[in-house]
């Protein structure tokens, strides 16, 4: 009998979903992952949302590696979720499955609806602990603070990439990711970006930043 199940996966296939708010650099981060994967011999697919989403709205992009041909990811099928903003990371939890890795920036960008008193921004701590109940593990830390510390508030994407590279999930080495960053960064931002990347990697190595599903 042929088993048809959403859990069927071919070895080597990896689906990453990136979410954030316009201006946070999610598109560049997904492109850099794609470039690094291409240089490593993969045939990656990187999909981007353009258009209305860029006026302060939500920006989602995807990176798909392996023998898959679909550029986008269905709900429940992202192996890795890279969340650039706390609320948006939680919103994108619907793309995750029980074995997903979530890397979450704990910094918030208050939506206008909340800023004007129409809606409440949930407690970040509760978002994180709820998320950890539905995925394999969550690595959460203030990526915005690290980016500022590295000298570039816009380098949140570099912090997140650094953290991802420090995990075991990605079939790409730190050298390969760094080469992609070097190849696509203006000289004046390179130093700060590399510093931000290393701070992200250090954050992912800190066990205090990890939460796992309580069994």
């Amino acid at each position: 009998m042929i088993m048809a199940s959403s859990q069927v996966k071919s070895p080597g296939n990896l689906r990453l979903l990136l979410t954030g708010v316009g201006g946070q650099g999610t598109l560049l981060a997904s492109r850099l992952l794609g470039e690094a994967a291409l240089a490593a011999g993969y045939s990656p697919l990187v999909s981007e949302t353009h258009g209305m989403a860029q006026r302060g709205g939500i920006v989602i992009s995807t990176v798909v590696l392996g023998e898959l041909q679909s550029p986008i990811i269905s709900p429940g099928e992202a192996d890795i979720l890279l969340g650039f903003e706390a609320l948006e990371t939680f919103r994108a939890l619907t793309y995750c499955h029980a074995d997903s890795l979530v890397i979450a920036n704990t910094a918030t960008i208050i939506p206008y609806t909340v800023a004007v008193g129409k809606g409440r921004y949930p407690e970040v701590e509760s978002l994180l602990s709820l998320m950890a109940q539905h995925v394999r593990e969550v690595c959460a830390f203030d990526a915005a603070a690290l980016a500022r510390q590295a000298g570039s508030p816009l380098a949140v994407n570099m912090v997140i990439l650094g953290a991802l590279t420090a995990t075991e999930y990605l079939p790409l080495s730190q050298t390969e990711i760094l080469a992609a960053i070097r190849g696509h960064t203006k000289t004046e931002f390179l130093e700060a970006n590399l510093a931000a990347f290393q701070m992200g990697a250090a954050a992912a190595r800190d066990p205090d930043n990890w939460r796992r599903r309580s069994l």
């Binding site: 009998m1 042929i2 088993m3 048809a4 199940s5 959403s6 859990q7 708010v21 316009g22 209305m52 989403a53 860029q54 006026r55 302060g56 709205g57 939500i58 269905s74 709900p75 429940g76 099928e77 609320l87 948006e88 939680f90 919103r91 994108a92 939890l93 619907t94 793309y95 995750c96 499955h97 939506p111 206008y112 609806t113 909340v114 129409k118 809606g119 409440r120 921004y121 949930p122 509760s126 978002l127 709820l130 109940q133 539905h134």
Partner: peptide, 26 residues
Amino acid sequence: LPYEKPTPPLPQQILGQPLPDRPPNL
């Protein structure tokens, strides 16, 4: 074919309250 429909987590249900919208703006 037998098919098990995936049951992705539903953030709003998990949180027990609506998530604030983030509409695009001028």
